[in-house]
Each structure stands twice: as structure tokens, then as C-alpha cells.
Write a protein that binds this DNA or RNA. Structure first.
Length: 679
DNA sequence: ATAGGGTTAG
């Protein structure tokens, strides 16, 4: 039952205010310039810079101006002033290789495919289209624009194909989700006899992961390349070995990845971070934290970096390990990793998921102008899952006001927020504006949000209309939302319709069968219910066992739902029996409808008492100090009976209880829940 | 000249 106890990290002695560190990073980086022109580089006066250089081109200074032109273009590129740099292109003499390199880089940085075409045309005219160095850069650039055809054209055109050029195209195809194409190219490289380097292997392995659509063959391909790596002695290269670990983990072979990791000869902070990230991503936050602790203990010379800390924070968020998360926060401050945006964003999410919205907001407010769209999305979704719909919408409007363009995820967060508080009209309006004002094409997930919003609010006809009008195939998320709504409103026919799709789309998802059985039970259609349960069994599936956990003094205590009490839970059981007796005196009737077994009333009540959340609440009542919020996390949705019992306890034990279920937070205080019984 | 691991939703 005892999960872990951390001893390795101690709180920071004197954390530095984060704003100081941010300003360090904001200092502009200037490359060498003739000192007489330095004063022209102030950000407010880009134009005088240009004019002043034009005036330099007097006959007496012609020789300096030749160099200075290239220098100037490079300088403008570095400062992101691509337009002015392009204006200088037609001037004689033609730019050098380095100048074109700077121009290509600037096109990538400014995200400007239009400028890229201009640059490409110019360098071709100047004969650089056969320059393998420039071609490599061009392939990288087109890869950035996801213009893989253009990348390939550049590759084909260049007769002198260096390993850099091969690798650049290989990488472009792999990161462009063209795994099949990438692996064909890799095969060509082997056939042609190119001498592969460690980058080639890393990219080829990445390509296998991009094959995800067919995981079996992806696994085979990784094994093949793995064999190749071993035969050519590249397994001792840290990058290659790390990519292998990552690949196997991403294809679902986490334990095999771990074995590889354990056998690695030389491990750096990376390899460690990769393995920690694998656990954090594969829904195994506990293992992630354990491995992090191991790294801190066993490898004193390896210092965790921002990537490590993001994964560790993700793990804390997954576990809702607030105590641990705070220590990690202190460590982040001490190591000054809070200058890294992704780390700060991960901090926001950690506090949100640990139930301390106020701390999340404090971190967010401390970001003074350094917020990106991820920071906003994290905070907006935080308000959403805590049931603060109005605040979520308000923050969304502040975000627009700040000139940050909302992303597809912004709308998933904000629509989710509307759904939690039944803001049907606002949700509809936002969905419309997403399409019309922000030009975002809704994905299946957005439709799923709308179906959830309308369906849960009881507007099932509207929800169906949304599905029927969809221009894309409604995936499992959409039908799943509809099924969830049917459960709330006891709509059997629609549930059957949703399941006819779901059982085909995701036959191994036990949750769908359980929901349908639940809906049949609610309609007292026992025969149908038994049939669904049989179907579940014949497919070899099992209901996901309920599990709740609670952190007390930085130790995690987890509880599985049990059908009978054993010695470990005796004390908790006794407390619950006492509470229920009192509640019954005040009119509480156990909601045995949620028990889908064919048992008599007493037995059903026993099962209700064994629900993991009640055990965790009882444990919290005994072990948490008065005045302290009891924070519980649950792996499934909260059942009705646990919800009403927890409401009761919050009132009569005068305790604040915060429960995070799989969808949202429930804040119980004085007999009421923040979800207003709508969840 | 390329390269490994990470940030938001469900």
C-alpha cells in the first residue's frame, strides 16, 4: 500500500525570484559589428540601419561595401528582419554561401515559405543549387514547412550527395510522418553503400515510430535496424542507444526498453531523461519518480536538466503528488531551470493537477509577458477542470487581448470548461468563432467536446445533429462522448447506436461495455445487461479496477476497490460503517444501482463501502490534520454513491475534500460539491 | 553542417 518515500531532494535554501532570471534570457544576442554602427542596432530603429549602409556604398569605400553587404544581410537575418535582407539580394556582387545559409535560416525562423521561394530562386541563379551544403540546408528548410516534395526535389537535383544531405532528407521524411518513405530511403542508403553515421540510425529509428499505424511492422523494423546497429557497433553511441530505448517504449514495449536502458554502458542525463519520460508518458508516473530518485542517488555527477524536470513534473501531476511537486519546484528554482518556458508550463500543469489552482495561477502570473500559447492553454484548462467556467472564458479573452493566437488545444480546453458548467450557449458561440474567426478546422476531438457539452446538458437531439453534420469520420472520441451523455440521461437507443460504432472502432475498450451495461441496468433491462457483460468476458476483457490514492506526509497511499474488507482496511471499514449509520439516520439511501452484480441489498451495500474512494476518504479523515484539505485522486469517474457520501462527510466532519476523478475536480465543502452534482 | 529525451487536451 505504501508507494514511496522521497528523501533525495531537499527544499531550496534561497530560491531566486523567477523574474530576474527571465530578464537574463531576454538580452538580445548581437554578433560582431563595426563599432561605429552599433548605435544603429537599437530595436526601435531598424530603418536607419539600412539607410546608413546604403550611404556607405560610396566609390571610395567600395571594397568594404562588398563585404559589408553580405555582412549586413546576415545581420538582418539574425535580427529577424528578413524583408530588408531580401531587398538587398539583387545587389551586386552575389551573396556567399554563408549569406545564403543565414537567409535560409531566417526563412525558417520567420516561418515564411514565401520568402523561402525567393531565396531559393536567387541561390539557383547564383549557381548554389549544386552546393551540397546549401542543399542540405534547403532540405531542412522545406522539412520545416512540411514541403516534403520540394525537399525531395532539392535532394534529387544535387549530384554530389553527402551523408549530410542523405541524413537531412531521411530526417525530413521521418519527422514529416512519412515513415514508409523514410525507411525506403534508408534501404537505398544501405544498398548504395553509403557509410552510415549515428544520425542516420537515429533518424531511421524515428521513422519506425512514425509508422505507428501498423505497430507490428514498426516493431519488426526497429528490430531490423537494431540488428544493424549492433553489427556496426553503433550501440555504444549514447544517442543511438537512447533513441532505441525511446523507440521501444513508444511502441509499447516499456519493459523491454527498460532492459535496454539497464544494459547501456554509458548513460548520460539524457538517456536517463528518455527513460523517465517514457514512464511519465506511458501512464506510469510512479515508476518515473522512482527512476528519477535512482538517478539522483546513483549518479551524483549527472545533473538533471530542463527536459528531465519537465518529465518529473509531469509524473508529479499524474500522481497528484503535491508534496513531491513542491520539492521539485524548489529544486527547479535552485537550479534556475525556471528560465525555461517548458519547465514553467509544466509547473502550472503540476499545480493544476495537484488541485492547487491558486499556486498554478501564481506561477502563471509570475511569467510577466513570457507566456506562450501553452501557458495560456494550461491555465485555461486548469480553470475548466476545476469547474470555473467563467474564469476560463475570461482568461481566454485576456489571451486574445494579449495578441496570442488560440490553437486547436485552446478550444479543446475552453469547450471542455463550458461543458463542465453547462455553458451550452457560450460553447456554441466559441465553436462558431473557432471556425469563422480563427480559421481552425474542427477535429474529431472538437466535435466530441460539442457532443459532450450538448449531450450532458440533455440536448441529445442537437448532439446527434452535430455528429450527422460532421465533415469528417466521427471517431471513438465522438461516439464515446455520446455514450457518456446517454448514461446520464438513460437513453438506451442512442447508447446502442453509439456502441454499434464503438465496439467496432475500439473492441478492446472495456469501459464502453461497462457503460452500456450500466445504462441497461438503469433501464432495468437485465437480460441485455447480462449479455453485454458476457460479451465483455468472451472478449477476455476486464473492467478497469477502481483505484484511489492520497498523499500524506509525502507518502502515497493507494487503495483498490475491494469486495470485502481485510485486516488492512478494518479500521477504515469501521469508520465508514459508523458514518453510513449516521447518514442513514439523516435519510441517506445507498445508491446500489451502481453495483452491477446480481446480489441482495446487504451485499450490494458492502460493495459500495469497499469503493476505493471511500477508503481513501476514511484514510484521509484519520491521517490528515484538521484544517488541511484532504486531496484524493481516482483513476475512474466518481460514482453517484461516493459523491453523495463525500458530500455528507464534508459537512458533518467539517472537512474540505478535494477529489480529482478522471475528468475533473470535485471540491466538497459543507455538504456541497463544486460540480453542483453535474459531472 | 545533422543527432537523444520534454511543455497544453482526452
Amino acid at each position: 500500500m505504501l508507494f514511496y518515500a522521497f528523501k533525495t531532494l531537499s527544499p531550496a535554501s534561497s530560491p531566486k525570484p523567477s523574474s530576474l532570471l527571465f530578464s537574463d534570457l531576454m538580452l538580445p544576442v548581437l554578433s560582431p559589428m563595426p563599432s561605429s554602427h552599433l548605435h544603429l542596432l537599437s530595436p526601435s530603429s531598424p530603418k536607419p540601419l539600412f539607410r546608413s549602409f546604403s550611404s556607405l556604398r560610396t566609390p571610395s569605400q567600395a571594397s568594404t561595401s562588398v563585404n559589408n553587404y553580405n555582412h549586413l544581410i546576415q545581420m538582418l537575418c539574425k535580427r529577424g528582419n528578413l524583408k530588408q535582407a531580401l531587398d538587398l539580394l539583387p545587389h551586386e556582387p552575389s551573396p556567399t554561401q554563408r549569406t545564403y545559409e543565414a537567409l535560409i535560416l531566417a526563412c525558417v525562423q520567420r516561418n515564411s515559405p514565401g520568402s523561402a521561394a525567393v531565396v531559393h530562386r536567387h541561390l539557383s541563379d547564383d549557381g548554389f543549387d549544386q552546393d551540397p551544403f546549401i542543399s542540405t540546408k534547403l532540405v531542412g528548410m522545406y522539412s520545416h514547412f512540411n514541403a516534403l516534395d520540394d525537399a525531395r526535389k532539392v535532394f534529387d537535383k544535387t549530384s554530389q550527395k553527402t551523408i549530410f544531405l542523405w541524413n537531412a532528407l531521411l530526417r525530413a521524411l521521418a519527422v514529416g510522418d512519412e515513415g514508409e518513405e523514410a525507411l525506403l530511403l534508408f534501404r537505398d542508403m544501405v544498398l548504395v553503400g553509403i557509410e552510415l553515421d549515428s544520425c542516420s540510425y537515429s533518424f531511421a529509428l524515428k521513422a519506425c515510430v512514425a509508422l505507428r499505424s501498423c505497430e507490428v511492422s514498426a516493431f519488426e523494423r526497429v528490430r531490423e535496424i537494431h540488428g544493424h546497429v549492433l553489427r556496426h557497433g553503433f550501440n555504444s553511441r549514447v544517442h543511438v542507444a537512447t533513441t532505441l530505448v525511446d523507440c521501444y517504449a513508444k511502441l509499447g514495449c516499456v519493459s523491454y526498453a527498460r532492459r535496454l536502458f539497464d544494459r547501456m554502458l554509458a548513460r548520460n542525463v539524457v538517456s536517463w531523461s528518455a527513460m523517465i519520460a517514457c514512464y511519465a508518458k506511458s501512464n506510469n508516473p510512479f515508476e518515473a519518480l522512482k527512476l528519477f530518485e535512482e538517478m539522483m542517488v546513483l549518479e551524483p555527477d549527472i545533473e538533471p536538466n530542463s527536459v528531465t524536470m519537465v518529465s518529473v513534473l509531469q509524473a508529479c501531476a499524474g500522481l497528484a503528488a503535491l508534496g513531491q511537486g513542491k520539492i521539485v519546484h524548489a529544486y527547479v528554482l535552485r537550479r534556475r531551470l525556471d528560465s525555461i518556458l517548458s519547465v514553467v508550463n509544466a509547473l502550472i500543469t503540476m499545480y493544476v493537477k495537484c488541485g492547487t489552482l491558486v499556486s498554478a495561477r501564481r506561477v502563471f502570473d509570475g511569467m510577466n509577458g513570457r507566456r506562450d500559447v501553452v501557458s495560456w492553454n494550461s491555465m485555461i484548462s486548469g480553470y475548466g477542470i476545476h469547474g470555473f467556467g467563467t474564469e476560463a472564458i475570461q482568461l481566454y479573452q485576456e489571451m486574445l487581448h494579449d495578441g496570442i493566437a488560440p490553437s486547436t488545444l485552446t478550444f479543446l480546453s475552453i469547450l471542455g470548461a463550458c461543458s463542465h458548467v453547462k455553458f451550452v450557449q457560450q460553447g456554441k458561440t466559441l465553436f462558431e468563432s473557432m471556425i469563422k474567426e480563427h480559421g481552425i478546422t474542427p477535429r474529431a476531438e472538437h466535435y466530441a467536446c460539442m457532443v459532450d457539452l450538448l449531450g450532458r446538458a440533455g440536448q441529445l437531439d442537437e448532439a446527434i445533429k452535430i455528429i450527422e453534420e460532421m465533415r469528417i469520420e466521427p471517431g471513438p472520441t465522438v461516439w464515446g462522448s455520446l455514450l457518456g451523455a446517454c448514461r446520464i440521461h438513460g437513453h438506451v437507443e442512442l447508447a446502442e447506436r453509439a456502441c454499434s460504432h464503438l465496439f467496432e472502432l475500439e473492441p478492446m475498450n472495456a469501459g464502453n461495455y461497462v457503460l452500456l451495461a450500466d445504462i441497461y441496468a438503469g433501464a432495468k433491462m437485465w437480460e441485455q445487461m447480462i449479455n453485454v457483460k458476457k460479451l465483455l468476458e468472451t472478449r477476455g476483457l476486464q473492467k478497469v479496477p477502481g483505484c484511489s490514492w492520497i498523499e500524506v506526509n509525502r507518502k502515497m497511499h493507494s487503495f483498490a476497490s475491494v469486495d470485502f474488507m481485510d485486516t488492512h482496511t478494518e479500521e477504515l471499514h469501521a469508520l465508514l460503517v459508523q458514518i453510513v449509520r449516521e447518514m442513514k439516520g439523516k435519510g441517506y439511501i445507498p445508491n446500489t444501482d451502481v453495483v452491477l452484480y446480481d446480489l441482495d441489498q446487504d451485499e450490494k451495500e458492502q460493495i459500495l463501502l469497499g469503493h476505493s474512494e471511500k477508503l481513501a476518504v476514511a484514510f484521509g479523515l484519520i491521517n490528515c490534520r484538521r484544517g488541511e484539505v484532504i486531496r484524493i485522486t481516482k483513476n475512474l469517474r466518481l460514482c453517484e454513491d461516493c459523491h453523495s457520501v463525500t458530500k455528507f462527510i464534508s459537512k458533518f466532519a467539517r472537512r474540505e475534500i478535494l477529489v480529482r476523478d478522471v475528468n475533473r475536480f470535485h471540491h466538497f465543502r459543507d455538504g456541497v460539491c463544486s460540480c453542483s452534482d453535474y459531472w
